[in-house]
Design a protein around this nucleic acid. Structure first.
Lengths: 204, 204
DNA sequence: GTCTATACCTCGATAGAC
DNA sequence: GTCTATCGAGGTATAGAC
């Protein structure tokens, strides 16, 4: 039996190659659009060898999805109720945008999954995701009540941060078509900082 | 030869049934994830009968994509350079959000296509889309220069409107998981109106 | 651990009766 | 115009030699 705590060098290396290749292919073609041939090609391993390390195509996909929600929610998890309210939220936006820039494939893999109704993410959306968002929304509501930020709906605020940051990864081809291929991130950083600063600055 | 201008009642009806069913299935599963069996089932026609009306699976998909970009850009096209700047933009946001609410399947079909690199949309992004956005961005830049709205990057403003409105259709399952299944649109309408009002109101 | 060969199935598309 | 039956390609997974 292979024990996760006692993997040989080869095993670690090949499982890593497969994960990397699978991320590349699944994020571009979706689960059903991707084929084991493509993943084999991209990883440099043979197709039967893929199925030596993972029992099925589905298992490879699950391996990727497993850690994805955690990675995805990490920036939100860092939101600190004891920090400066406005700075905390602006930092969150910045971290989330950086996540899109550094992990566009993970963003697209996630988007593919959600777009199709999250058939392979099970109940993690209703449990883990919802619990964290409820927790952070309560913090934001508190900040509003204390007048530390302008009044906003905490849930729609969080949705808007997700939407605005992930858009640059998920709709990359559209963005670059409009911008003639230019890197959108410097402009996005400035625009989003400005947007949320104006939205959230307490007035009067 | 079938001439589009002389379709029988049956032809019109069945082609309509196929389009409706294909939209339902393609938007949920993507092009490769969808099967003709599913579309046949959903349309109430037999699989060979689908291929009597359309030469291939790809042709059905193209039929849907064909009009999609136009439908998609219609709200932006209405942006009128002679109207009141702030009201024009807020109305655009509202129209675009309504499009998400009324056409979530079209939104997801489009998102599926863009997410995977728009392999079947040809050059329409680089030509039609870019031309329209450049045109409207020039109008917005003009409004900024005249001081009729606060200074913003016109391109990122348009991206942000797309991202924020489409998010509610494309990431519906995630939004509803967080909101316990509640309808997000009333809250979204208020939040987005508020957001863009604060962002764009000229100050000083 | 890794390969070649292949079993087996799903799916798009066609043949041909009605 | 619509059906049943079926072909053939492509895809997941397995067998078995090395």
């Amino acid at each position: 039996m292979t024990d996760k705590r006692h993997l040989t060098k080869t095993q670690q290396r090949n499982r890593g190659l497969i994960r990397e290749a699978a991320l590349e292919i699944f994020s571009q073609y979706g689960f059903r659009g991707a084929t084991l041939d493509q993943i084999a090609e991209a990883s440099g391993l043979s197709k039967p060898n893929l199925l030596y390390y993972f029992p099925s195509k589905e298992a490879i996909h699950e391996e990727l999805l497993g850690g994805l929600l955690d990675l995805w929610l990490a920036p939100l998890r860092e939101l600190n109720d004891e920090g400066d309210a406005l700075a905390e939220l602006l930092d969150y936006v910045s971290r989330k945008l950086q996540m899109s820039r550094e992990h566009p494939r993970e963003s697209r893999l996630f988007a593919n999954e959600i777009l199709q109704g999250a058939p392979r993410m099970g109940g993690t959306l209703d449990t883990d995701l919802k619990a964290l968002v409820d927790d952070k929304a309560a913090i934001i509501r508190h900040w509003v009540e204390q007048g530390r930020i302008a009044p906003v709906d905490p849930y729609h605020l969080i949705f808007s941060i997700w939407a605005l940051t992930q858009h640059y990864a998920d709709f990359d081809v559209q963005v670059r078509a409009v911008l003639d291929g230019a890197d959108p991130y410097p402009g996005a950083e400035a625009y989003l900082h400005d947007l949320f600063l104006r939205l959230l600055s307490p007035r009067g």
